[in-house]
Design a protein around this nucleic acid. Structure first.
Lengths: 198, 198
DNA sequence: GTCTATACGAGGATAGAC
DNA sequence: GTCTATCCTCGTATAGAC
């Protein structure tokens, strides 16, 4: 979902490490933690399974890095939204729009997928995931407080609720062919009612 | 989540087939499709891996039956709610309460979990899953139309949105220790605002 | 119905050559 | 950095005895 810039074609060729992370992310976001393998990455990147272990010694390390990178990218994007000259309602819509990205290819938010896989994740990855959720909720809560004059308690609650709705909507639209549009139809009425604007 | 009656202790001993389904359901709801195995069931039921194939020849068949049974149980429970003498707002709250069950043990709604695993599910299971979603949404849409004078289009939309919220909230509360209470804190304010009540 | 035994592939990981 | 070769474990599934 926030890999638009990561995946962008560029003149400078991507390092193997980057390619591995990008490919792994694509697979985790569509299949989940247990159902993707070094063999999948190997095939796409054009490198042998064993070579991947040079860059990431274990699957745990690979996915841990993945979540960390995803969080950094996401928070960077959020900060750019927050520092734009848009109104708060528009910023909220820019944020929500991030959750449309990848839906067409059957990809969920990386961390929504990993939340479903939580029970089988090594503790290191669970910890990284918690930091992600905490950070995004804090950012969103802040936006809602600023934009809609909510007190911190209510801001926290509403941000959790909105994120739950976004994650749930991503799950839902996968089982239909018409993914990104269905997502908007689901989210927009709720958004306009709850947080009018822009 | 709707296995309260299935899991209930009873004087009549459960058939092996039932025990396999119950155990499989527990594992799918916490770990997902790819991360549970015949070995897991074998250990809990006290039967050899190979013996499970007598009851369900393939994993696909096993999970297909699981989803079908889950849907039947769920719709049965929904019908009992609909035929009760409660007001519609109370019926809505009874329905939402179903989604609390299992959270304490780290279990999601079976079909929320399988929606996350959609990309790796055999087509037979995907089809069964679609029927589940369609049926529950139809039931909920009907309740909302009756209880809150919504037209069918809006009822459908709101039912999809509410289910997305419920599924997303289930994902969210797993990453905290305080599961079922956190679920209520997340859901109830939204529910009271959107569908006042009882 | 349940068992033992086994086939066969896939998955994560390591050693050592280049 | 990447390769080949290999190890070991686990997963689904089958055959055939009891």
């Amino acid at each position: 979902m926030v890999d638009a810039e990561v995946m962008k074609k560029s003149a400078v060729p991507k390092s193997t490490t980057q390619q591995i992370l990008d490919t792994a992310q694509k697979f985790v976001r569509s299949r989940g933690y247990s159902a993707f393998s070094y063999a999948d990455i190997s095939e796409e990147v054009g490198i042998r399974k064993a070579s991947i272990h040079y860059h990431f010694p274990t699957k745990t390390e690979l996915v841990r890095h993945l979540v960390r990178r995803y969080r950094d990218t996401m928070l960077g994007t959020c900060d750019r939204i927050a520092q734009s000259s848009s109104t708060a309602p528009q910023q909220l819509r820019d944020f929500v729009a991030l959750y449309r990205c990848g839906l067409g290819e059957g990809q969920l938010c990386l961390c929504a997928m990993l939340m479903a896989d939580l029970a089988v994740l090594p503790p290191e990855i669970q910890a990284e995931l918690q930091r992600y959720v905490q950070a995004v909720e804090a950012w969103l809560s802040d936006l809602l407080q600023r934009g809609y004059a909510l007190d911190p308690t209510l801001g926290d609650l509403e941000s959790k609720g909105l994120l739950a709705l976004l994650h749930g909507a991503q799950l839902r639209v996968r089982i239909q062919a018409d993914s990104p549009e269905a997502f908007d139809r689901l989210i927009n009425p709720w958004l306009d009612r709850q947080f009018p604007g822009p």
